[in-house]
Design a protein around this nucleic acid. Structure first.
Lengths: 322, 322
DNA sequence: TTGTACGCGTTATCAG
DNA sequence: CTGATAACGCGTACAA
């Protein structure tokens, strides 16, 4: 340790660097100066070797491109939140894209190798064995979105179901009589929960078309809804992108929004406010989801307990489309 | 090293694990079995300590939220490309958001501490001292997008200027006579270069309005262009989002696209194909930019030379808006 | 309060 | 081809 050129032992330097109390003020001063002068930076590898911590957290994104690389800013928003929280805690964010099953094994090895202090799992599908394995290995794990299947993993999620329910209820309160829904994929938890919310609130025979959260799918779903149910006067779409697609279809066939058909989306993306007409939608606090995700994991990694599920509120934002 | 319970020395285990040639086949066999049985995973910290490598690469995003957290999928696309390439090389991606100058210092320390084998810099602004410092410390650096100012850093970029030039030229070839541009921010290299392309190709007095790559700014810019130059019959926007905003303004004021006004965007985002009407645009290979970025950095980290700038082609995608 | 000395898990060198 | 053994740079009992 070069900094011991400051006339003290390496142990003292270590103490100063790590902010130990038991160091004489003047010695601390001297050491600080030397650290500065020599541009000393602790070697993380050596440090981890002895502390058994890495100060790094992995964010594993196991999702096919669909949602992530469309123009849905959900992914970026969550990452941003995570990043803010980790930075405050002095942790690094290791981003791992792991769509294929093969790379799942890699993730497993990576985490098992003690490369990170914990793992955040993004949108776990079906009966993915990864989280359970990680947990068995004693690695702190938190999921973004309720894990499908029978898992007891801690997770952070928005109140998707309640948000959807309120949106649909609002449509009826506005005097709408036939409310359809454009649901998300049946294998994604956000899709499932929002559909359930619709089912809870709908007062007539449910009218459902499925999309995959993209604009195009929303436009197509709207077409088929109009064909099968020309008398519908409102639509709740499980994402703003799909709602925007629906808006386009409605415009093309000459149905006015909201006069003829009311439309509500979900997310409150940037597209929502800019849609034509501006979209009434259910806002979920995306960045806050990211922050919470990180906070929960940090707690877990510190050996504390966390409440799970940790639910974040959604809120109906009324604009012009409904 | 527990695996030496397989009756060999740690050195031999190390050799097997790292795939050295000089190990007797039967010993390799035995070791492999023990590794499997004991679920042994090499400790990265210990390894880095001696190899002086971390097998991790940092991606530093020093951009205010603007472009990253809008619904512009550029950020996600580049990350995806980077991620693919790094995964293939067995490297990890450490994502660092560093908008503030304060956190710049953190990045510096982090890199200097030998935590990563190299750094990719995302959209460097003006005279940012960070890259130069990193270079001086001997840390491999590659920039995404030409660094503004007088830098000799290697970088990867799309042929923004040429792409813009071709787009504008195309408009004139189609018989347009007054072509305006909605330019990007004057402090972002993509904005500057695309504007220069326009300036090169325009055959009359330039007609310019500035935006910030967002939809809203595009819509506003279009309004002001129409006010000042009601006779324009074509617009080249420096991003698809701005073009989409322009489309909306044109629709609102009753100008038909492309009959009255032709519109060309830039990026070929998912919005482009879905815009109303579908947007003619200049495609840049976003994911490939990410891949190249990673590849260049890996080369640098391996001590090889790289060609810089490394330019990726843009291509005019003709749809219906022009 | 300070210093000494050990060990963390690997890889690399050098004999054998 | 294989096995000792010496680093790598740090944190931390333990002793002073």
């Amino acid at each position: 340790m070069v900094a011991s050129h400051a006339g003290v032992s390496r142990a003292t330097v270590s103490r100063v660097v790590n902010g130990s109390e038991s160091v004489a003020p003047h010695l601390r001063e001297v050491v600080m100066r030397s650290v500065d002068a020599l541009g000393y930076v602790p070697n993380q590898a050596a440090r981890s070797l002895v502390t058994q911590r890495t100060d790094a957290i992995a964010l594993v994104v196991s999702e096919p491109q669909s949602r992530i690389f469309s123009d849905d800013p959900y992914f970026a928003g969550v990452i941003h939140g995570v990043s803010l929280e980790l930075e405050a805690a002095g942790k690094q964010l290791v981003l791992i894209m792991s769509a294929s099953g093969e790379s799942h094994a890699r993730v497993e090895r990576y985490a098992a190798g003690g490369h990170v202090d914990g793992v955040m799992l993004f949108s776990i599908h079906g009966e993915d064995p990864l989280p359970a394995k990680l947990e068995r290995m004693g690695i702190p794990v938190v999921c973004n979105g309720r894990p499908l299947g029978s898992s007891t993993l801690p997770y952070v999620d928005a109140t998707n179901e309640l948000g959807a329910e309120n949106a649909v209820r609002y449509l009826f309160e506005q005097g709408r009589t036939k409310v359809a829904t454009i649901a998300g994929p049946a294998d994604m938890v956000a899709g499932i929960d929002r559909l359930n919310g619709y089912l809870t609130a709908v007062t007539h025979e449910p009218v459902i078309a499925y999309g995959d959260f993209t604009r195009r799918s929303g436009a197509l779903a709207m077409q088929s809804l109009l064909e099968l149910h020309p008398d519908l006067d409102a639509v709740f779409a499980a994402s703003d992108l799909m709602a925007d697609g629906a808006l386009r279809t409605l415009r093309q066939v000459g149905r006015r929004v909201p006069e003829d058909v009311a439309v509500i989306g979900f997310d409150d993306n940037t597209v929502a406010a800019f849609a034509d007409p501006p979209l009434t939608t259910v806002r979920q606090p995306i960045q806050e989801i990211g922050r919470s995700l990180a906070r929960q994991l940090l707690k877990l990694a510190a050996g504390e307990q966390v409440e799970s599920p940790y639910m974040l509120p959604t809120e109906l934002i009324v604009r012009e489309s409904a």
